[in-house]
Design a protein around this nucleic acid. Structure first.
Length: 387
DNA sequence: ACCGTATGTGAAC
DNA sequence: TTCACCTACGGTG
């Protein structure tokens, strides 16, 4: 159940695992029959735009990914879609924190601990090339529901349950990018487009944040959480907000989403607002790198201020968190902290360098890519500064 | 076995 | 505003 951070993370994982490679492309389930057209094409690059994933294939390594021969697979995970990775140790998520994982998108579990990964009896299934090299991994059997399988020399990725998995041409890609609002995780994002849309709308800020034409990539968790961090009532119409408040929401989302893309999990609570135990790393499932925070360091139940915390006391004031339908989804908020009366400048305005800053060398725009690439565990090192 | 739920979207009413 | 859709999993019977 992904928001935009997951899709950027996936884009990085697919590029790391298959980028530049000739790959096997199939639809074990049969519901994406166009997969056959791409069999043994080259996965040129993967791009995330909001919650949309665009995987560009070319017939050979020399072809221009922007050229007319390129084909694009458009994937939207919807509520249920997920990718499952299997392959060499660290495959696709090499450089990620902790152990290699399965099931990016909906849930992640340790590769070694998976009991669902049925190994094929023929180890040669893992071979994607014809050079006779023995793969160091074994292909798992696809579930019957696997819509799309990508298989390279060092691993595979299975897609199940997507809302969309279809072939796009470049004009369809352009139309999609045109339709979407700015994505805080993309280098080409224009925050002013978001600010202008919000300030010009009578719709509530809580609904606007869920509208992908207003801002791309925010989902139900980030909506609730960023509004709490701004101490903003979800039901305030956009036009009643100041430009500074709206820009502050954007500026807060950037490091929050980057953190999510980098670690694979959403954490929005300030350390001082978590319970004391939360600062203790209960257990370690891998070697920490460069003193980086282990993703398990913040237990899920301490990661949010309001999401799914209805009836629980607010972490700040103790008032009972409320929930209510807004824009077809349930919004969660603290009626006291997020009342109009207590509205103030967002948290980032006071603390420009929060704990969500990327550790040095961990993330940044590797250049040449249209997305920020911070999802990419294997993305090039470049210091990413928070404005 | 069945039910409810889930970080989503878009078409139909 | 309601509904259908794509899937997996935990709880309940």
């Amino acid at each position: 159940m992904p928001e935009g951070h997951t899709i950027h993370r996936l884009a990085g994982a697919l590029d790391a695992g298959f980028g530049g490679q000739r790959v096997r492309v199939s639809s074990p389930q049969g519901r994406f029959e166009e997969a056959a057209q791409l069999e043994r094409w080259v996965l040129a690059r993967t791009e995330a735009a909001g919650k949309h994933l665009l995987i560009t294939f070319t017939p050979d390594a020399q072809s221009d990914p922007e050229g007319p021969a390129a084909r694009i697979v458009h994937v939207h995970l919807g509520l249920y879609g997920s990718w499952t990775f299997a392959g060499d140790p660290g495959f696709a998520l090499a450089g990620a924190i902790g152990a290699p994982r399965l099931r990016v998108g909906e849930r992640e579990e340790a590769l070694a601990g998976s009991t669902r990964a049925v190994e094929s009896s023929a180890g040669a299934d893992g071979s994607a090339d014809e050079d006779g090299a023995e793969p160091g991994w074994r292909a798992i059997l696809p579930r019957p529901t696997t819509r799309l399988r990508l298989q390279g020399v060092s691993g595979l990725a299975d897609l199940t349950g997507p809302t969309a998995c279809e072939l796009y041409d470049s004009s369809q890609r352009d139309a999609l990018l045109q339709r979407l609002g700015p994505d805080p995780l993309r280098a080409d994002a224009d925050p002013q487009r978001f600010v202008d849309r919000v300030l010009g709308s009578r719709t509530t800020i809580g609904a606007l944040l869920m509208n992908q034409e207003v801002i791309a990539g925010v989902g139900n968790i980030y909506r609730a959480e960023v509004l709490f961090r701004a101490r903003l009532d979800p039901f305030v119409p956009g036009r009643e907000l100041s430009a500074g408040i709206v820009r502050g929401i954007w500026d807060d989302l950037v490091p929050l989403l980057r953190y999510g893309a980098r670690t694979g999990r959403i954490v929005t609570t300030q350390p001082e607002h978590r319970d004391i135990e939360a600062r203790i790393v209960e257990r370690s499932r891998g070697t920490l790198q460069n003193g980086e925070e282990h993703p398990d360091a913040v237990a899920r139940e301490r990661s949010f201020y309001v999401y799914h915390r209805q009836t629980l006391p607010c972490r700040i004031c103790g008032t009972e968190i409320r929930s209510r339908d807004l824009a077809a989804r349930t919004v969660f908020w603290c009626p006291r902290c997020q009342s109009v009366r207590s509205r103030r400048s967002p948290w980032t305005a006071q603390h420009p360098a929060g704990p969500w800053a990327d550790p040095a060398g961990q993330a940044g725009d590797p250049g040449g890519r249209s997305d920020t690439g911070d999802a990419g565990p294997a993305s090039a090192a470049a210091p990413a500064q928070i404005a």
